[in-house]
Computed example of a mutant assay.
Amino acid sequence: MISVRDLKKVYDSFTALQSVDLEIEDGEFIAILGPSGCGKTTLLKLMAGFMKPTSGEVIIDDALVASPRQLTPPEERNIGMVFQSFALWPHMTVREHVMFPLLHHRFTAKDLKKNMRERVETVLELVGLKQLAGRYPAELSGGQKQRVALARAVAALPRLLLMDEPLSALDVELRMEMRREIQRIHRKTQSTIVYVTHDQSEALAMADRIVVMNEGRIEQVGTPEAVYTKPETEFVAAFVGKCQLMKGTWEEGVFIPEKLPLERWKDHGVSVKLKKKGFYPVRPEQWRLAPGGERGEGGIVTLVQYQGKEIHYTIQVENEEWEVHDSVYSPRFYVGDEVSLSLRSFAETREAALV
């Protein structure tokens, strides 16, 4: 178990982390999600042991590993690291990269050291690199290099695997492939994974829980579904799922949107913070479009983007632009069309997502 308690990190006059508290269970896959400069990489570095916190502490398996007065360096922690830049050694083959932690990691179990060659072959098989074991990094593609970095990190079966935006340098197809690879490795090794990313789709697809950060603070912690469907703050609503924060009035658990006064929306778990500010978060796929003049108030289509199974519309409603994602099997609208908008029920939203 990892405990982060009241953690703060200050660089000169800049506060990178502000009183962060977090508990991570053994075997969990945690994604730390947020924009550039939000403090997520600083938090990862403090967990790894690359620097001391200004205040607070990090505890791993009941042992204090970081505080303002104490720091256990990375090599003395049972961790593996995967970096954005791969960090491979040009003079070592793929097999030598995988063998390195087995030879030098102080926490490598005796049975792994005893059966080192067998373990190397098992890990190479796990990441699909058995046929490339004799190659050097210069002879590998980007995806293959990332697999080597993963193999090296998991070879010694560390208790904690830290990943700092490991897929950001890869193209879209490779990222999708490597997501599946990382999930498969997690299931096989049962290591605890802390995965830093700015990509919400990665976090939603892979993590058991997501930690959403902004300006050095944790905004929300929860399952991917909870973070996506029930954002607790304005930032989470806008950053994860690109919600439209509708302004309006709450009356006895029912929301009356300011710009759609004919609508009455039920409370499906809107947070207290958003209610107090008179907001109701609506995701793009929750909107129902109809030709102008039908029930509901509306606007004008200003942009249409075909996305395969979805059409992404931009709707001008007075002085605002609202995003709407609709199925290609729904009635089609075009730039300049007048449309009315209403809110789908949660059942309709789920049904539309399955089409």
Rank of each mutant, 00 (worst) to 15 (best):
1 M>T: 11
12 D>M: 05
19 S>T: 13
20 V>I: 15
23 E>L: 08
24 I>Q: 00
27 G>Y: 02
30 I>M: 05
32 I>S: 00
33 L>S: 03
37 G>N: 11
38 C>G: 10
41 T>W: 06
43 L>E: 02
45 K>C: 06
46 L>E: 13
52 K>G: 02
55 S>V: 06
59 I>T: 07
60 I>L: 13
61 D>W: 10
64 L>M: 11
66 A>S: 14
72 T>D: 04
83 F>C: 08
88 L>V: 12
89 W>T: 12
96 E>S: 12
101 P>H: 09
108 T>H: 07
108 T>F: 00
112 L>Q: 02
112 L>Y: 03
117 R>G: 14
118 E>H: 10
122 T>H: 15
122 T>E: 15
122 T>I: 12
131 Q>C: 03
134 G>A: 09
137 P>E: 02
141 S>A: 13
143 G>D: 10
144 Q>K: 11
144 Q>S: 14
147 R>Q: 07
149 A>F: 01
150 L>H: 01
151 A>Y: 00
156 A>S: 15
162 L>M: 10
164 D>K: 05
164 D>W: 02
166 P>L: 11
172 V>M: 01
174 L>D: 01
176 M>Q: 12
178 M>E: 07
186 H>Q: 13
188 K>Q: 15
188 K>N: 06
189 T>G: 02
190 Q>G: 11
192 T>Y: 04
195 Y>S: 01
199 D>V: 06
200 Q>A: 04
205 A>D: 03
206 M>D: 04
207 A>D: 04
210 I>Q: 00
222 G>S: 09
223 T>H: 07
223 T>Q: 09
228 Y>N: 07
235 F>L: 05
240 V>F: 04
243 C>T: 08
244 Q>P: 00
251 E>S: 13
251 E>I: 15
252 E>S: 15
252 E>G: 08
255 F>D: 00
259 K>I: 10
259 K>L: 15
264 R>A: 13
268 H>W: 14
270 V>N: 05
274 L>C: 08
274 L>W: 06
278 G>N: 07
285 E>R: 09
286 Q>R: 07
300 I>G: 02
303 L>A: 10
303 L>C: 07
308 G>E: 08
309 K>R: 15
313 Y>Q: 08
320 E>S: 14
326 D>T: 12
341 L>F: 07
345 S>Q: 03
348 E>K: 11
353 A>Y: 15
354 L>A: 15
